[in-house]
Design a protein around this nucleic acid. Structure first.
Lengths: 251, 251
DNA sequence: TGTACATCAGTGAACGCGCGTTCACTGATGTAC
DNA sequence: TGTACATCAGTGAACGCGCGTTCACTGATGTAC
């Protein structure tokens, strides 16, 4: 921030204003990530290879180690980037639909998530597919991992605050086990939203349903059933929202 | 079946009664499959290695080729075996609960599926996780792949036939798009069940929900939320059944 | 403005490893007469 | 029952491949005086 002085701070980043070298470094880093992401599409996360990435960029494999200390760090960076992209897209859909009825907002957010997932199926697999054996996601990935979920839940919270939330039809209080209530508590604390247990359980159900549907579609379990049927997806998303108790325009 | 004669049939299997060699062959085949399945648990499907399997059995890697013509065939056999196990378990739960109310049957089947999945997480990942890059599941896997789904749907069909199926609350006919109706038709034809579009859509929703929930639990998306909470799973399974319109004991 | 020095991106060879698959082979085990 | 032959399970070496990571190095680019 300051041109002169400051002898005792930030010795590690002694660059001029924003450091030409640092900028170049950041750009190559981005290029490596982009190439790695393209690799994912072809070979899957498990087969992500430092050498292949380097080859695609016309570098020598050892050069990549200037940017990522190991293959696993590269993988982590990819995961964080993907979570952030998905979170971004979801938050945007939620924000843009601010003035719409809750049910429409839910459907819009669900469609945004589906849109991103279909555009980036390999990234989706990285986030929501089977875990990569031998790789343990570090803690850095936890926070970005909740962005999309937070955004979805904020729709429910807004509806509850606005008084436009019906009682969830299928999860009546007396039907819930103590475990469900403690789950509700966990979510209230971790995601910082203040909603009833019943609504939380209904939301969790809708959430799993949404990603279950997407996994089936993207991993090919529903050959010809859901693919290229955005209208059918819309029906499903609507039903999920109704289950939570979200109201549409007509209600 | 016959000790003598039959010159013109089954020349390819000219063995004595049931062929001592053939029996030995089948047993080693099973041992290879079992070892491969154990490998899955450790390394994942992508890393399934003919050499590692052979090593575990104290064979030389080339010997495995007497039993499976290639790595991919070994993988296919594993997939088929897993689908069959899961189908078996599900069908059994459905059969055993024959006289119970439909909602209880649904919950029992869901719990059976969860039980198997938790016992065999690697097999579950093989079936419902991200696809193995570079491997295309051959047609042999399609039929075993529908066993569990068929069994679940048969509960709904039984309920419909027995008149104990309420109208699905959240998917009213006028709310469905034409795509949903054509999806209904596909399922009616492919799975050979005769149920209304609305109920089919609700069933598809419940089905995706079930596997979505399991994927989250098994792939670690819901750390601490669902794991070791069979009661919470039961709540979820019940809600799914209610959504389809299945009635319980009290209704 | 000019020079001496430090930083760091990228090179190329090497390490030790595991992989799928092929092939000519050795013996044991069943089969036919 | 005994012998000649065919079948086939399993061996061991080899093929060509790709991998992650390390290391000593060469230059280019910025930095400090």
């Amino acid at each position: 921030m300051c041109h002169t002085g400051e002898m005792n701070t930030a010795r590690t980043e002694s660059s001029p204003i924003t450091g030409a070298r640092a900028r170049a470094h950041a750009e190559v880093r981005r290029e490596i990530l982009a190439a790695a992401s393209r690799q994912l599409a072809v070979n899957g996360a498990q087969a992500l290879s430092v050498r292949a990435v380097a080859r695609e960029l016309g570098m020598v494999s050892s050069a990549v180690y200037r940017y990522f200390p190991s293959r696993d760090d590269l993988l982590t960076a990819l995961i964080v980037a993907a979570y952030d992209e998905l979170g971004e897209v979801t938050e945007q859909a939620v924000a843009e639909s601010r003035s719409a009825p809750p049910l429409d907002r839910w459907v819009a957010a669900a469609e945004a998530i589906r849109g991103w997932s279909i555009e980036h199926p390999h990234d989706y697999a990285l986030l929501y597919g089977s875990p990569v054996p031998g790789y343990a996601a570090p803690l850095d990935t936890v926070d970005p991992g909740t962005r999309a979920t937070r955004a979805l839940l904020s729709i429910v919270r807004d509806a509850a605050n606005g008084g436009t939330l019906e009682a969830a039809a299928n999860t009546r209080p007396q039907a819930l086990s103590p475990a469900a209530h403690s789950t509700g508590e966990v979510i209230r604390v971790e995601l910082g939203v203040d909603i009833d247990d019943e609504v939380i359980v209904a939301s969790v159900l809708a959430w799993t349903q949404l990603f279950g549907l997407l996994s089936f579609e993207l991993f090919g379990q529903t050959k010809g059933l859901v693919e290229d049927h955005p209208a059918f997806f819309r029906d499903c998303a609507t039903a999920m929202g109704v289950n939570i108790g979200l109201r549409g325009r007509d209600a």
